[in-house]
Amino acid sequence: MAIPRVIPVLLLKNAGLVKTVQFKEPKYLGDPLNAVKIFNEKEVDELIFLDILATPEKRAIPFEFLKEVAEECFMPLAYGGGIKTLEDIRVILKIGIEKVIINSQAYKDLDFIREAVYQFGSSSIAVSLDVKKNFWGKYELFSEGGRTNTKKDPIVFAKELDTIGVGEIMINSIDRDGTMKGYDLDLIAKMSAAVQVPVIACGGAATLDDFDKAINQAGASAVAAGSMFVFHGKHRAVLISYPEQADLKQFFSKKASK
């Protein structure tokens, strides 16, 4: 049985490390390379980098930064933000980041995803779905960093992605982002039941129990978190942290045996 993956998500904005609340008010936390160094020493399961301005402000993909990360970090690495062409993907993979996460471009052009999966293999192509509940409680998919409502149904769209053969689907709950109120378990459970591929839960995690619920109740394959790994205490002081691997192992094995 795969060991549950616990993944810090690092948001980048103009080469700085930031954290948002409900995709808004990015708070500057510091130099992302410092955070990466700490996570590397902690031997984290995986790292995800998302550049939150690359698409909305049409900024360049931070290739130099990614290169620096890949030269020092020997763990699974994924990058998302502003990926629009097969050439973008080729360059990122060549640097040594083995997974790209596509969001806005997936809604616009499914053929692009199809071609990317064909050229680079399923395992290199993940799609992240930014999801928000509307006034009536219906889930809707957003693009451009949460700015544009695509009006698409996340579950229906995820099934299409599953058929096309993407390697992973990351669900990002806009409502829960940065709130530390726990994952949207209902959304994660619906998504996990609908697709074959691994689902990464993201948005709202505050405790190890949240991880347990997302994995063992809702069926996610991996759990991602931002605030939990970069803030400490109720005043949200910046402190990069990650549970000890031995503690994670003990926690999950205890939960699994129940």
Partner: peptide, 18 residues
Amino acid sequence: DSTKTDKKFPIPHMGWEY
């Protein structure tokens, strides 16, 4: 072949394993 098990095993198998 993940069809022969009751439990859900996503394919590809992606993650850390002992």
